[in-house]
Design a protein around this nucleic acid. Structure first.
Lengths: 243, 243
DNA sequence: TTTGCTTTTATGTCAGACAACTTGCATGAA
DNA sequence: TTCATGCAAGTTGTCTGACATAAAAGCAAA
């Protein structure tokens, strides 16, 4: 059993602060405690707090003003996704104000297609695990999510896989891998037959497709995900800081 | 003439490093100089270099490995946009491997619609400047860009506005405002008549619409932009670091 | 060749100090 | 009272130096 390195202190601070912003402890538009106060409260150095705040600022969660303070972005509630979690579908749904849930549809083993082999740096025909899941917003099916992962990466018996887990946790628990970064392609397409079976809306309407490649820290591709959803129901909005 | 505060040192370092990555000085997958070397070379402290690197890492440009070094993301060339510049259409075109250019189509003054007034925090009927521009990839028209800005913010004679400038520079030069952050809504829609006049492709095909709201540092909305383009020609791909 | 240890080098974290900037208050003049 | 000026306090930005932690590189022994 491989040991996964624990998160860095700065990333833990980042998560704590993000949780407070999302949870309403720090309200939109309000000023959050100063760097010194946070470093005292959390028992870490000011440098570490600054590292965490820099990341939050880069992702548009907070605005920093020299000589004044750090403020929570007023428009947080208007954005459904953020740069750290464009591929986090549950958060995308939550960001739209719905209660997310996941329904496991199917899991199968099959050889990789030419395109999949190319993207995942495999030989054509190598075996893949195909995971098909459906994301719900409250009771409404909204996102059809397909993930393909090389079978050779699997560390645990395939029967143990819990199809309702977060993709990040699936990798940690069954593949002993950490996702280091992702590459997402956003496309406009139309609702076709196979997806129409699961998602509501008239066939032929314009929908969004998020095609995501997951990588681990050494640039090795871990998985390919294709997620489609109706953007008239679920909005994809992003905040970004400039400067 | 208002003085625009010069950029912070960390942001200048950030720009220098980003330019080197884009310009191929630091090649994809390669290790860039250490923090100490950079701080020596650029004449700033290691803390400042770290601030710049933290931002680049948050935006997926680089990967940092403790005990090893800092590496340029190998897949930089596969991404057309980045979190710092989703609304930067010229860079989006350049990221797709084309030479971007801007054609100024029209500029007019008219009262704000109800929806525009709401988004821009204006009274309904207040005057707007409407800027319509067409972005080219090499010789091909690819993005139709509409921007509306409250007329009351204008500091210079309207005749002086150069419609070919970057939106950022338009704000700096004619409105004496700095864009602090932006909020972008990504939607899937179909190519309709008025846009079809400028963009190629059959009418009714699925295209992407980027709707962007620009804010200054005090959360005052500066402008509303609506950009539509055919994502079969121009890809919208984003990199994001996790952890 | 392989394995295990040591050395080197890089990023991560810490502490303290000062600079640059903003805000609000107090003071004083009109 | 009203307004302008200047001061003080607080916050983020930058600097310096040090040590902790982790990974790669080199070396030596099996």
């Amino acid at each position: 059993m491989r040991i996964l390195q624990s998160k860095s202190i700065a990333n833990q601070v980042d998560e704590i602060l993000l949780e407070r912003i999302r949870g309403g402890v720090y309200l939109p538009g309000s000023r959050i405690p100063s760097e010194s106060e946070l470093s005292d409260e959390l028992g870490v150095s000011r440098a570490t707090v600054r590292t965490a705040l820099a990341k939050l600022a880069a992702n548009g969660f907070i605005l920093r003003k020299q000589g004044d303070g750090t403020y929570v972005n007023e428009h947080i509630h208007e954005t459904s996704a953020h740069f750290g979690n464009l591929w986090d579908l549950a958060e995308l749904i939550a960001g739209n104000g719905y209660q997310p849930s996941i329904r496991f549809l199917s899991m199968e083993r099959r050889p990789a297609t030419e395109k999949e082999a190319l993207v995942l740096a495999l030989e054509e025909g190598e075996e893949l695990i195909c995971l098909r899941r459906l994301f719900y917003a409250d009771q409404q099916a909204v996102i059809l999510a397909d993930n393909v992962i090389p079978f050779s990466l699997l560390c645990e018996p395939i029967e143990k896989i819990d199809g309702k887990l977060h993709i990040r946790d699936i990798f940690e628990q069954y593949f002993h891998q950490k996702i280091s970064f992702v590459l997402t392609d956003i496309r406009s397409t139309v609702l076709e037959a196979d997806a129409h079976e699961f998602l509501s809306g008239e066939s032929g309407r314009a929908i969004l497709q998020l095609q995501t490649i997951f990588y681990e820290k050494n640039n090795l591709p871990l998985a390919l995900g294709v997620n489609i959803f109706d953007d008239s129901f679920l909005h994809l909005s992003l905040a970004q800081a400039w400067n």
